[in-house]
Computed example of a mutant assay.
Amino acid sequence: PSHSVLSSCVIQDERPFHPQRLWDIYHHHMGTGVYRSKGFFWLPGRDDLALLWNQAAGSISLAFISYWKSGVLEHTDNHLTAEERQALQQQLATSSGRFGDRHCHLTVIGEKAEIEAFATVLRQCFLTEDEIIWWKTGGIFADPWPSTVVHLKGHGTL
């Protein structure tokens, strides 16, 4: 009998995920050998929200966990005082990221071959440079994820 090798992989990137590609990957590429994945990420169009990705076996939940400081500052209706705005700007000045404090960080655990395949397609979900330019100039991406906190069970591969 063959023994599966348990492995883990960390996916980190400062770019946001493309909402439709991420939806498609989740529904069509997450095999049964991906036992657990967890972390946080962001999406264009929801660029002020830090979202929690929490997957175990065949279910996933996405939850709002916090606001990115960068996103709060970019919104004109944030009701910040001048002092609060300055404090946030000072905190962000120490962040080296291209998108301020926003970034994606997911840990995937499962059978080695399956998590490597899943990680490969997941990395293809990040916005490309052309998509970033398009988004920064007002482009809007299709976003099939529910707008409220959600828990999804099952997907195409199970």
Results as ranks from 00 to 15, higher is better:
Ala119Pro: 06
Phe118Arg: 03
Trp134Ala: 15
Lys136Thr: 14
His155Gln: 14
Ser61Arg: 15
His28Leu: 13
Gly97Val: 04
Lys136Arg: 15
Leu51Phe: 06
Leu88Lys: 01
Ala57Val: 11
Val150Cys: 11
Asn54Gly: 04
Phe126Asn: 02
Phe64His: 08
Val150Met: 07
Gly156Tyr: 04
Ala117Ile: 00
Phe40Pro: 02
Leu73Cys: 06
Gly110Asp: 00
Thr76Gly: 07
Ala113Asp: 11
Phe40Cys: 07
Lys153Glu: 11
Gly31Ala: 14
Gln91Gly: 02
Gly138Gln: 01
Ile11Lys: 11
Met30Asn: 11
Phe64Asn: 05
Pro19Ala: 13
Lys112Gly: 02
Asp143Met: 02
Val150Asp: 06
Arg21Gly: 10
Ser59Leu: 03
Ala93Cys: 04
Cys9Gly: 03
Asn54Ser: 14
Leu158Ala: 12
Thr107Phe: 01
Tyr26Ala: 12
Gly58Cys: 09
Gly31Met: 07
Val121Pro: 04
Asp13Leu: 07
His75Thr: 01
Arg98Gln: 08
Tyr67Ser: 06
Phe40Lys: 02
Ala117Gln: 14
His75Lys: 10
Ile140Asn: 07
Arg36Glu: 04
His79Val: 02
Leu52His: 12
Trp53Ser: 08
Val34Asp: 03
Asp130Arg: 07
Asp130Asn: 10
Lys38Ala: 07
Pro19Lys: 12
Ala119Lys: 06
Ser37Arg: 04
Trp135Arg: 11
Glu131Leu: 03
